[in-house]
Amino acid sequence: MSPLNPARTAREYPARYRLEAARCDACGAVSYPARLVCPACRGRKFSPVTLSPEGQVLTWSVIHVGPSSHKHEVPYALAIVELTGGARVTCQIADVDPAAIRIGMPVRLEFRRIQEDGEAGVIAYGHKAVPA
């Protein structure tokens, strides 16, 4: 079991690389990543939508004890970010002074390395927030 199995990583590209999401045709709720059933109304028809990279911090933590995959990055900030348009993402806040993070802080998603499967395995890319 590796979270960075190549097939598993590649199938997440639309969401992780391009912030592609799905808007429910019935109720308009945006699901990110895309899924088969709308959690808001159980609608099954969606239209593709690309998330705005701009947003603000809803809540955050600074992690001092990390999992194996991120243990050399501590301390790092993790946040739930609400993007313009209402979709939410859980992501790190990079390039930030932890003391400067606030609820409501404007951030922007930037393309970053998220994990790597050791020195020889695949590198998984995605987005982190940076102060806007």
Binding site: H72, E73, D95, E110, F111, R113, I123, Y125
Partner: peptide
């Protein structure tokens, strides 16, 4: 570069 920055990430941001 930070640990999460490399030629690919910088290229993507510059390209965007």
């Amino acid at each position: 570069p930070a640990r999460d920055e490399d030629t690919i990430t910088m290229s993507v941001t510059a390209t965007r």
